[in-house]
């Protein structure tokens, strides 16, 4: 692939030759390879998965069973709960990241000591492998030997079973996800805040605005593009989250922290290929159904301004 690209890149990049006017920047054959890759690697599997979700298949044969897989998926409580958990997970992680990200962004664009250092500290967890973070926190949150609960015990507080209490497990993972992902949100917000012209604040200050008024009427509205990006990115990330959950609880205890992705993985592992493909289709439709209207809404509001 590299060798086919190089000559024409050189050609377009060479400043000596006057560039002829073309309707398309590249000749038609230039699109053939990417188009082929797209069809083979993305289009065909996507449509094949729609078909296979209607079958019960092994690696050797398929039986067409209509919508049975979907019926199974929505009727079995242990599968369906995965859908609810996914929703809770996506909304909570996304919302928390926006709020925390803005607050941290405000803090880290103000004149404080060690700003550069603090910025990198906030961003550091983003760089660490998710599996590594998951396993580390699993050890830290161990109800009896973990650092968190032994520290609490030293203060005289009996810490809960963060990952073993069925009512708490999902929320503990959400907390870790926010800790790990808030750096990216903060970074985007910092970029957004730095881009806001200082004149607005100066004008507002002359008019006697308080800090809170400036935050609500200048910073927040002008951060809209950043906010949109953070919400979309973290919602999509939250809806398809898997690695952190798998590393920390494997969906347990029981099925109490199962999300769609981990349900799909378990069904696949068990050899229920049709059912897991149906789960993937459900996930695909869910992500589309949530993200598409959001994207349209944000875009329209952006244009209206």
């Amino acid at each position: 692939m590299v060798s086919t690209l190089t000559p024409s890149q050189v050609e377009t990049a060479s400043p000596a030759r006057p560039r002829p006017k073309r309707r398309s920047h590249y000749p038609l054959y230039f699109y053939a390879l990417p188009a082929l890759l797209f069809v083979v690697l993305f289009a065909v599997p996507t449509f094949a998965s729609f078909y296979f979700s209607l079958t019960r298949w092994t690696l050797f044969s398929t039986t067409f069973i209509g919508l049975d897989n979907f019926r199974q998926f929505f009727s079995e409580p242990n599968l369906f709960s995965g859908l609810t958990h996914t929703f809770i997970y996506a909304v909570l992680t996304s919302g928390t990241k926006v709020v925390l990200g803005i607050l941290l962004g405000v803090l880290l664009t103000s004149r404080i000591v060690g700003r550069g250092y603090l910025r990198s500290v906030i961003f550091f967890p983003v760089l660490v492998s998710t599996i590594g973070v998951g396993l580390t926190f699993k050890i830290l949150l161990d109800p009896f030997h973990g650092v968190v609960n032994t520290s609490l015990a030293a203060l005289g507080v009996q810490g809960p079973g963060w990952l073993t209490d069925p009512h708490l497990a999902l929320y503990s993972i959400i907390g870790v996800d926010v800790w790990k992902g808030v750096g990216i949100a903060t970074l985007i917000f910092i970029a957004g805040m730095v881009a806001i012209p200082q004149e607005y604040y100066e004008a507002a200050r002359t008019d006697g605005s308080s800090g809170w008024q400036m935050f609500v009427h200048i910073t927040l509205p002008l951060l809209r593009p950043a906010t949109t990006t953070v919400i979309l990115l973290s919602l999509i990330g939250g809806l398809r989250s898997f690695d952190l959950i798998w590393a920390m609880t494997k969906g347990g205890p029981g099925f109490t922290s199962d999300v769609i992705a981990s349900v799909i993985y378990k069904q696949y592992q068990a050899g229920f290929y049709g059912l897991s493909t149906a789960g993937n289709v459900v996930l695909f439709l869910l992500v589309t159904a949530i993200i598409l209207p959001l994207q349209l809404l944000f875009n329209r509001q952006g244009l209206a301004k």
């Binding site: 069925p166 347990g252 205890p253 029981g254 068990a270």
Partner: peptide
């Protein structure tokens, strides 16, 4: 996973047995 639920009070014996019958059904069909 079902026996973890029954063994830690998340689910009852009846619910657990029922869930396992469903699980077994998928395997038999597969």
């Amino acid at each position: 996973n079902i026996t973890v639920e029954v063994g830690s009070g998340i689910s009852s014996a009846d619910k657990g047995a029922k869930a396992y019958d469903e699980d077994v059904k998928k395997q038999a069909q597969q």
